[in-house]
Design a protein around this nucleic acid. Sequence first.
DNA 1: TTGTACGCGTTATCAG
DNA 2: CTGATAACGCGTACAA
Lengths: 364, 364
Amino acid sequence: MPGVDDGAARPPSDQRHTATIHDVAAAAGVTIGTVSKALSGRGKLRPETRQRVHAVAERLSYRPNDLAHSLRRGRTFTVGLLTSDLHGRFSLPLLAGIENAMGEARISVFLCNGGGDPSRERQHLESLLAKRVDGLIVAGARTDPRPAVEVGSAGPPVLYAFARTADPRALCLIPDNFQGGRLAASHLVAAGRRNIAHVTGPEEFEGARARKAGMEAALADHGLPFPTSRLAHGTWTEAFGYLAAARLIEADRAVDAIFCGSDLLARGAIDALRERGVRVPDDVAIVGFDNWPIVSATTRPPLSTVDMNLEALGRLAGRYLLDLVEGQSHVGTLRQPCSLVCRASCGGKDCTPCSETEDELIHW
Amino acid sequence: MPGVDDGAARPPSDQRHTATIHDVAAAAGVTIGTVSKALSGRGKLRPETRQRVHAVAERLSYRPNDLAHSLRRGRTFTVGLLTSDLHGRFSLPLLAGIENAMGEARISVFLCNGGGDPSRERQHLESLLAKRVDGLIVAGARTDPRPAVEVGSAGPPVLYAFARTADPRALCLIPDNFQGGRLAASHLVAAGRRNIAHVTGPEEFEGARARKAGMEAALADHGLPFPTSRLAHGTWTEAFGYLAAARLIEADRAVDAIFCGSDLLARGAIDALRERGVRVPDDVAIVGFDNWPIVSATTRPPLSTVDMNLEALGRLAGRYLLDLVEGQSHVGTLRQPCSLVCRASCGGKDCTPCSETEDELIHW
DNA sequence: TTGTACGCGTTATCAG
DNA sequence: CTGATAACGCGTACAA
């Protein structure tokens, strides 16, 4: 009969030995089966025993080994997030949303940054698959189709968030750029603007095209013109925003609003206007896109801008991935609505300017 | 005698069954031991057998299960990176450097973002420990001591990167803010400036104090004065940079340079100067701190700024962590040197302005 | 109510 | 050269 054994069988002298269920059992004078039941609370056993086991586990700072647990369960309660953007501008809000959705299911999320390098991405993918993640979210930074991630027929379910792939059997969640563009333009129209220009990124970006199309639709709704002379495609840079706005305003003094395809572009545009004595929003209203607080909230005047609700997108991605993991099947491309954050640059009178303290900015 | 068996014992009909070493063995007509040796290349066996096993493994797209492997090896070849900054401004460069150092050792890095919330951080920590990571890097965004991360006596080694803790037995790697401040100031002096002001963050930040002290040391070296009237502590915001520079320049027209404690502050300062007709760098030179490309490269004129070399810091952290994992012991706080990135705002004649294309900016 | 034994997928050791 | 077998730590039927 084993009886009470204070664990001398295991080497307690080994400082770097993590306590196992055996150690707890030995120290509590029971067997591992009892410990398992006591800690998981599943089986029926005497309260006294349960309490004793708990106390011992606490004392030894016992922590169940997830590897063994996962091996047995056939699930790891872990999902991978494979990203490409170096700066985390999009991944981090997405991550926050995903974790939010996953947290309740006690699933942890591991972020791996491929940095846009296919070979690094492949390497991370291999590693995640070898670790048997229960699911995979591929996050990008643009809505143009990207190569599909190959996980094989036995691989975990994959979901694309703020990314898209051509495979029709894939599930992709992206912001609704068309609706975002429409939202921005109709807001400007509602604020009384009639001659609206558009400064945006390269035409190769599906996002840029969709935002422009949304704007055109809004203008068409109101019977407003949109001559090509008021459209400027360029790089996604502040420098281009500056240049384009300067040219626009000098060529066409009737312009009373500019919808910019990104906050950075908007910032450049505002600078150009201010240097030319054009008041924002009095003379020309500006609406940006992204709501990147570090840019939009610190511009003077603070930028009114379209928010893609990335955290909500992430939360949704998390919930869908849970479904996929459970065996449900979802396919297709889902577009999530954008919203408008009104600060000061759009000149809307009914806009309640945000008086957020923007805490994050204070401490970096 | 087992002989050739095409794996009928295992359910090949199960679409979602990942191939195990048993499947490979059965399909190749050998036993698991042989497969293990063939794939790991460790044991001695007939080339023909080895090749056949490899072919079968390939065909079944067999991928060794890291969970089982880790359980057996007692190591997971995985380290955790526990961060606090929501925006990834500091974590992501660090992560890149860490991965760089770890990649060669075929160790993967998992990033968990605590978002500054202690309870979330604790939760992530528990999860990482349960997954038996081989090591842990705690990354912060400031050099003031933070609470130590408790992993228990049997826990993995912990290293603090761009973060510090009071525990004298901890290993902390931080940028050398003093040297950075000294570097900025002496560069301005070398460029001929004599009346240098300083606009920086809250005095509670050890980083702000150290940068200021470094600047003072540089000025003292050259016998230059630094009256308190030329020092402005405030929030780490562009708005404060604007305000402080405006006040400074109006109160003291002799000022011919401002060293700013962050790029955001510098950007605000430049705006204030330009609006008052003060030319940068001709009348007043500016040097920032951080080299956050999205800010420093897009400011007009492009910002000369101190770079904390976060990626190098991350690489070093990775190498040190590998040492710790191997059982070596390192303690203390190591300060890594900063470098100066000369663009245009410092007005140094010998500075080779960077003509980096700043590719990242083009595509967001 | 408590203890025993098996299997999850590996690797390593030891026989054959 | 190759095959069988014991761990690694856990959960859980099943036996006592």
